[in-house]
């Protein structure tokens, strides 16, 4: 494996809940290579949400190291983390999290706004990203004029538009029926084939089965880490 895109060493995260200390992560080590398609699984309380927040630079660890694309990010300030999220990470959420009053195009442009891209370039890059997910003809629709699957595609286009190092998906099919879920998995498979690194947090085994590698967390530690065979594509 070449230089990994993600390198995690002994990562811990404690939460103070009143007088009690909750240990969400108890020392996780993990390397993720470029162009890997990885699923993170685990029952609730296993620490997979915390793990996803760590990988997504939304939260900082209590201890350990996290190298993302050659940069140690575990000690960065809030604003430095915001920049890292903007450049390196494309989020796909279970509930899509689109801005309800904005068009598809505007939603996809948003990361570029924070990246300081000019409006002309924003527009062309955002429409290209929507084209990649097959929504080139839905650019002026608002989220409430789109189906669930289409909304999630808009969200994927938004995640891709900044050409991030990793696409980080949190239960991407959790709000979708099985047919639509399958469609979204096809989109992921296609992106993966084009070279996109994808990390997907899910509790559904059949969704995780689309990934090449599955990491299962339990009680804040890695329980198993094994290669799987992508069934899709």
């Amino acid at each position: 494996m070449s230089e990994p895109i993600i390198r995690i060493r002994d990562l811990t995260r404690h939460y103070e809940m009143g007088t009690e200390t909750v240990q969400a992560l108890r020392g996780v080590s993990l390397d993720i290579g470029r162009n890997e398609y990885l699923a993170i699984m685990g029952p609730s309380g296993s620490g997979k949400s915390t793990m996803m927040n760590m990988i997504g630079c939304l939260d900082t660890p209590t201890g350990g190291e996290y190298w993302l694309n050659g940069q140690e990010v575990s000690q960065l300030s809030d604003d430095q983390l915001a920049r890292v999220r903007n450049k390196e990470i494309g989020f796909v959420f279970q509930t899509f999290n689109l801005l309800p009053r904005a068009t598809s195009l505007h939603n996809v442009e948003l990361p570029l706004v924070y990246a300081g891209v000019s409006s002309r370039e924003r527009r062309s890059r955002a429409s290209a990203a929507l084209g990649r997910v097959g929504l080139g003809n839905r650019m002026d629709h608002r989220p409430n004029e789109l189906s669930g699957g289409q909304r999630q595609r808009v969200a994927i286009a938004r995640a891709l538009v900044n050409e991030p190092s990793i696409l980080l998906a949190d239960e991407p099919t959790g709000n979708l029926d099985s047919t639509t879920s399958e469609e979204i998995m096809q989109v992921f498979a296609e992106l993966h084939r084009q070279g996109q690194t994808i990390i997907m947090v899910t509790h559904e085994a059949d969704i995780a089965a689309h990934a090449d590698r599955t990491v299962v967390l339990r009680d804040g530690k890695v329980e198993t880490d094994r290669a799987t065979h992508g069934v899709a594509a």
Binding site: D78, D79, A82, R83, R85, N86, A115
Partner: peptide, 10 residues
């Protein structure tokens, strides 16, 4: 939250 996730600073 979404805006922050997408890279908005404080």
């Amino acid at each position: 939250g979404v805006r922050k996730a997408l890279g908005a600073t404080k």
